Simulated assay, not measured.
Amino acid sequence: MGNRVMCMKKKDIITSNVRDGSRSKRVNRSQRKLLSDEEMLHRRALSMAINQAQLSQRFDGSMSKRVGSTSSRRRPLSDPFSNNKQVPDFSESLTVKKFILVHGEGFGAWCWYKTLASLEESGLSPVTVDLAGSGFNMTDANSVSTLEEYSKPLIELLQDLPEEEKVILVGHSTGGASVSYALEQFPEKISKAIYICATMVSDGQRPFDVFADELGSAERFMKESQFLIYGNGKDKPATGFMFEKQHMKSLYFNQSPNKDIALSMISMRPVPLGPMMEKISLSAERYGKGRRFYVQTLDDLALSPDVQEKVVRENSPEGVYKIKGSDHCPFFSKPQSLHKILLEIAHIP
């Protein structure tokens, strides 16, 4: 542990010259069915997002555990992103089958709909969670001032696990800070932690510091940013931020399908600022003993490959994976690649 390793040699990963998602010139009947299945998944997620936007005042704080799932039944030999090839069921060889998927800033459990479905189809047990003020959790984002408050739904989920049960935590973007916080609180409950183009911070570092090369220093951002939200009044400190739609499209979704961009535009919510600016305390005795893996996205404009490389260099995860052709949202732009990586990490002894 502590030594970086380059992993994955499958066609979607950087070690290959074959482009992920390439289609044959002739779309046969089985491929059309796959496209139809994926479209159905998207329609379900989009429908839920629209309901959220229209009926948000009716929801109280909650966790979304099966957003976008096509079925509660297990179909282990059918992978919706495998070009209809029969894939072996490896789940029986796993000691830890439960994944908890943690979204990043502005997102919610809804963003994992493809990943959720593909993991379920592989015989695993994924769970998604809405952090405070995100997704279907109707906590006012302006009232969330600490990482502890922001991560509370995740912490409660871990607390409710049976005593001997372990999970694999997956964090996207700033969700990595919540994963690190959880790893510090419950190292005995977390088998592995996977950071996807995420804020894998060092002890005493702020999640925002990872983005400093992209957005400027925290002090400059707080003073000059046009995206800040003052939920308690202009005379009080900023409580959150949210990029304009055009900025979000260019930063987050430069490789994602248009339908997923549309889903995101009606679903993303303001980001609580306090948790982003809080220095995290991480100990060698608890967090330091966790098994951490990092997934780099090489066409990312929100967190550049150079910055991600710096994060990896400074924090020494056990394994490093790189996805070529992925923007900041590989669950949209490269779901097949991400799915393969998650399965690969799950099977590491």
Rank of each mutant, 00 (worst) to 15 (best):
Q86K: 11
A177Q: 05
V87D: 07
G133W: 08
L161T: 02
F243H: 14
R4D: 03
K310L: 10
Y321K: 06
G288Q: 02
S47L: 09
V129E: 04
F243V: 08
L46R: 03
T128K: 03
Q226F: 11
P270G: 00
G135W: 03
F221S: 01
S125P: 00
G61E: 15
K279L: 03
K322Q: 15
I280P: 04
T70A: 15
V144W: 05
L119V: 01
I168K: 00
D327Y: 12
S326H: 03
L35C: 07
K11D: 05
M248Y: 11
A218N: 01
S264E: 07
S337W: 06
D327M: 15
K236D: 08
V67Y: 13
V320T: 08
L263H: 11
V311D: 11
F331K: 05
K192T: 03
V129N: 01
E309C: 08
Q86E: 14
I190D: 08
S134W: 02
L303A: 04
P317E: 09
E224M: 12
I13L: 09
V179Q: 07
E163L: 10
L282P: 07
S180V: 06
E163Q: 12
K245Y: 11
E156R: 00
E38V: 12
G231E: 10
L116Y: 14
M222F: 08
I341W: 03
V144L: 02
C329K: 00
K324E: 08
K245Q: 13
M6S: 14
P76V: 06
L154E: 07
A262Y: 08
G290F: 07
R286C: 11
L101I: 06
S281E: 12
K245A: 13
N17P: 00
K33G: 11
E121V: 01
L46S: 09
G325I: 04
F99C: 08
A45N: 01
S118H: 02
R220E: 10
R74W: 14
C329I: 02
G133P: 08
R313S: 12
H42L: 04
S134F: 13
P330R: 11
E344V: 03
S316Q: 11
Y252H: 10
G123R: 10
L228F: 07
T139C: 13
S173P: 03
A45S: 04
S191W: 12
E164Y: 05
V127R: 14
M222I: 13
Q255K: 15
K310V: 01
G233W: 05
S180M: 09
P153G: 00
L157H: 02
G231T: 02
I50D: 05
D235K: 12
E92H: 12
D327W: 14
K310C: 04
E314F: 10
I190W: 14
Y181A: 02
E165W: 12
R66I: 01
G171N: 01
E120I: 03
K189Y: 13
F99W: 13
I261A: 13
A109Q: 00
G319N: 02
V96W: 10
K236P: 05
P270T: 01
T15E: 15
L124F: 11
A132Q: 03
V312A: 07
K33P: 01
D12Y: 15
K85L: 15
S225Q: 05
A109G: 06
A141I: 12
L228Y: 09
Q336M: 10
S173C: 07
M277C: 07
P126E: 02
Q296R: 15
Q246W: 09
L55I: 00
I348C: 07
S281D: 06
K340N: 12
R292K: 15
